[in-house]
Nucleic acid binder design. Sequence first.
DNA 1: CGGACGATTGACCTGGTTCAAAAGCGGTGG
DNA 2: CCACCGCTTTTGAACCAGGTCAATCGTCCG
Lengths: 253, 253
Amino acid sequence: MTFSVATIDAAVAPPPMPAPPTQAAETVTGRCAGCSARSKGLCGALTAGDLPDLSTASRPLDLLSATPVVMEGEEADAVFTVMSGMLKLYKTLPDGRQQITGFATAGDVIGLAVGSGYAYTAETVTASTVCRMSRTALRRLMERHPAVQGRLLAMTSVELSAAQDQILLLGCKTAVERVSSFLLALSRRSRPLADGTPSVFLPMPKVDIGAYLGLRPETLSRVLRKLEVAGAITRLTNDRIRIEDPAALEAAA
Amino acid sequence: MTFSVATIDAAVAPPPMPAPPTQAAETVTGRCAGCSARSKGLCGALTAGDLPDLSTASRPLDLLSATPVVMEGEEADAVFTVMSGMLKLYKTLPDGRQQITGFATAGDVIGLAVGSGYAYTAETVTASTVCRMSRTALRRLMERHPAVQGRLLAMTSVELSAAQDQILLLGCKTAVERVSSFLLALSRRSRPLADGTPSVFLPMPKVDIGAYLGLRPETLSRVLRKLEVAGAITRLTNDRIRIEDPAALEAAA
DNA sequence: CGGACGATTGACCTGGTTCAAAAGCGGTGG
DNA sequence: CCACCGCTTTTGAACCAGGTCAATCGTCCG
């Protein structure tokens, strides 16, 4: 069985509460004006005056967890900007082995394709909101607003750099080094706890973290315990880790 | 000791023969007009009428093998287009471990940086010719010719896709699968032998191929022997391999 | 001819995987 | 409120792909 982008509509989540009051009376322009990811991703390249262009070109979607958004190899007819939640991006080998190439959060753009087909599969790991824009609408937007193309280049370059860091991690580093690097990278992008100590939120299952770091979940579990015993981290809950000793992690990474 | 881009001048090769007749009488415009990489890389985005812009902005350099061109972390003040030869791009861990992230050949652009510093070190593996363009000249060229920015985006996207393939290779595949994938990828980009059988040219030392595939040279040697015994390949010389059975490699990859 | 360096081969070792089982941990229904 | 169920996580023990160490072999140059 193959999912297509059309599947998304079937997986659109029902409104969590009665109905988002923001959506009913909103004008098309207003939708983007109030977007929490407004300053990020592609949209950040546009000024307030361009909002009508943006609003008509794109359309938000609320998705449940474990919902596919784009499928590797399928016709790449749209791109998606993540507004909230988290997605995993992965490639699959013919025999079923999967490698997660990255996680996407608010502001990230997914589905940019070189040729006609998507290069990877993207699937929500938590309930998420994404904003769909057709490829032709993106092309039109780029023609009309050259800054969008510049932003796209900058974002792609950042992603390329991150991919090369991941190549270094997978090609050279040991299990402990991989996990330490991963925790540090996440902690740099997240808010510290109330008491000021840094922490990381891991909404994805351990098997996904393993698939990202090139490790089995068993190995990941053992490494985390080792780091905990060493006093570098504390497991607060299953999906939250407090970093007790950033310097120790730095040294291990 | 640190190399800087200035080092390049010290390593410029003397003209191999008396003097390249093409260089002496050439006008600035003519230099790019006769360039073998003219249709590739950034330059392919420009029409013949734009050649003066290109020629004044860039300058060719002949380099010996094992010459550093850009150094990871150093101020990224220029980009380089490869005209001939081959370079390796690599990242280094504090303890000296190195991971080659890619090889650059004619048409490839190296030195594009996200922030102020180069993301990787680039070094020639064979004698090469590269074309230097300062960052400000590139910026000016992009402003004057929007197609250059589009080309840059396309090239970066292709590189990103290649990097993600490499992540899949390093994260999931076995040694035999890695080597098979590598040989197939190279064979797709090279001309077959006179008798029509595909072959690959490997000018770089085995240790570099290993550093690219995340393998030790000993392992690489063993895998190549295994593939040879299986009848999939033949070692013609140390740096050339004939692919006897592409289907077998495909199956192993 | 000799010396240096890369490639190859062999023997052994080990970090991470694999297989198996136990322990948490939400969710669901009684 | 608690008992049950399915899933993820953790832990233990044996195994193995690739790494490490070391010796040999080519081959290219001076």
